[in-house]
Design a protein around this nucleic acid. Structure first.
Lengths: 349, 349
DNA sequence: TGTTAGCACTCTTGTAAAATTAGTGCTAAA
DNA sequence: TTTAGCACTAATTTTACAAGAGTGCTAACA
């Protein structure tokens, strides 16, 4: 990478520029750096270095006679090599512990709480997604007669999560029949991933099926996508803290609102983006800066995410904020919260 | 009321002023009225009338030498007595019919779609709440063993809506025991309202209960609020169209954003407000203008809602927008959509 | 008595010029 | 290699002024 090409001094200046920009949100000039940070260099020298950094693509000029602004590449280098790890204060950690580690609250409550906590700590938009069923292993299926021609399908997953769907079969079913179907489904599907089931449901139910189960099986076939889909996650994903983000100075210009509004209106956008970030780093924290994520609408934002564990599956916690964010602090918060959340979920279930 | 005190001419002027203000969002002056609307009166006369209307509290002055702006009272009089009913165009009606009356979509899909449709038609913030369980009659309770010490409670309501809750009982239960409890619960609770059950659960389960059911019953007692609560509704309430509302000219000043953001962030605020509106008018459409609703944050907004029916229970559809909205059109849209929605839900379930 | 015309006055809005500010790039000197 | 100095730029803020819209009031009119 380019890190070899940068001298120590250039790195220092770059760090200061980014630091300063993060604080003030306005282009930072050479004199400013030379004064504020006790570096034995004159503005002119700093100017030269900044010009070099600009040539290398780490900084940018909105126009002549304005200070420098970090580019995406600049931020990237900053988070990769320059940033000093931030330690949460004991108060913050204790706040997180106390908020999340309390017993006796619903799982969904925990997630919502976590999201609210994260957005309060970072003053940014926080998001906690529900674990994806896709990677979950089906433990068993139960069918419950609801009366009329309705049945309730209860899916239990290894991690202990339960999902229910009501299904309309167009004829009243006999209890015996349903029991038989239930047995068959369990024999052939349990232990598989949801995604596998979706793909191969039809094949797996082929053959050796009692003739008079057929009509009901057909209903199942038609609804397989619905039953084994993942949309649940969308409903149970929590996005909080929009109030914080609109206070950021970058919102002086109205147009940016659109994208944020859309963000909280359909969670799908964020969820999709968080999925995308998963592909890059599974274990560690993932940082996506500006144009690095595919969605154009979010070119002006960065995304910091980390997975948390729930049984065998994993959800994500993360934040969305302007590219100019205190990465070190945000990363520390996200990481710590994800850990506490994992711990809490393990204890309770 | 004051309607007696207003002459025909005053009413006409008031109507025109409000009309004009709805269109332009900026204070309307006397000359403007005198010219635009073919009224045989000079600006000066109009001025006099407007001054009278101001004394009566229907209009307001931002400052000397600005045009007049309707007050809440002005709007109230307008929607009560002045407004001409608006007829939706056949195109609009057909659009609504086609969107909502399609078969084979999930109930929740229908609600979401309805909300989106309504916000598109009105260009305002639309909201569709899930029917309240509180007023629903419990049809039956089923208990399903999930394995381990977990059970799933399935509540079926008269309207066909089903609600499920997983419950952790701290000891493994025997099938026979559960069946017995299930029977008892059904005998004593079915046919009652959720709200009644919440209040009297303990009393109803008093006496003649088998000794070894006790521990499980106790878990039920502890969780009764959770089981028969209404929070489900919050999750299944859809709020859409925020992107529209931020385009309104009243958003030139940033501060107003806060309230809107909060509105879509916790749906509770809107849901609560819609509940509140229910107290006023159960059957017909309800209009709340500016300060008429208790939540200060929404003093600058109006709320138009109507109930729709689902089985024995009722949900709400409504819109939130700046006080300066085309009430007649909005009312027409809300009413029509609520009707179509009721029809659709009746057909499908 | 209700209506209108005229006029002075008040605010807001728009625009253009001027002053201010923060910052750069370049050259020459240390 | 670093620094100081200087000319130059682009954005921002200030200021001033003119135009427009609207009111309130008084006096005249039908």
């Amino acid at each position: 990478m380019f890190s070899q090409e940068l001298t120590e001094r250039e790195k220092t200046i770059l760090r200061y520029v980014i630091h300063q920009f993060i604080l003030t949100a306005s282009p930072v000039g050479s004199r400013n750096i030379s004064k504020k940070y006790e570096i034995g260099l004159s503005p002119a020298t700093v100017r030269n270095i900044m010009a070099d950094l600009e040539d290398l693509g780490f900084l940018n000029h909105p126009h002549t006679s304005a200070g420098r602004v970090p580019t995406d590449k600049g931020y990237r280098f900053y988070v990769d090599s320059l940033m000093e790890p931030h330690l949460l204060s004991p108060q913050e950690m204790s706040l997180i512990d106390r908020s999340i580690l309390q017993e006796m609250i619903e799982r969904e409550e925990v997630l919502k709480l976590t999201s609210m906590l994260l957005s309060n700590i970072t003053n940014l938009l926080a998001c906690v997604t529900y674990p994806k069923f896709d990677d979950a292993l089906l433990q068993k299926i139960q069918l419950v007669e609801l009366g009329g021609s309705k049945i309730l399908i209860v899916l239990t997953v290894k991690s202990g999560v339960v999902k229910t769907i009501t299904l309309e079969i167009h004829q009243p079913a006999e209890t015996k029949q349903l029991k038989a179907i239930e047995r068959t489904l369990n024999e052939r599907l349990s232990g598989l991933k949801f995604s596998e089931i979706r793909e191969s449901f039809k094949d797996r139910l082929q053959g050796t099926i009692d003739e008079n189960m057929k009509p009901i099986i057909r209903v199942f076939l038609n609804s397989v996508d619905k039953i084994f889909s993942d949309i649940e996650g969308t409903e149970k994903t929590f996005i909080t803290g929009a109030r914080n983000i609109v206070r950021q100075p970058e919102f002086e210009d109205l147009s940016h609102f659109q994208s944020i509004i859309e963000l909280i209106e359909d969670k799908d956008v964020i969820i999709h983006m968080m999925d995308q970030s998963a592909e890059l780093t599974t274990e560690d924290v993932s940082i996506l800066i500006g144009g690095e994520h595919k969605d154009e609408k979010l070119n002006e934002y960065s995304l910091v995410t980390k997975t948390y564990k729930l049984g065998g599956t994993a959800g994500k916690v993360g934040i969305v904020g302007p590219k100019r964010m205190e990465y070190s602090r945000v990363v520390a918060s996200v990481v710590y919260i994800a850990e506490v959340l994992s711990k809490q979920l393990k204890n309770t279930y």
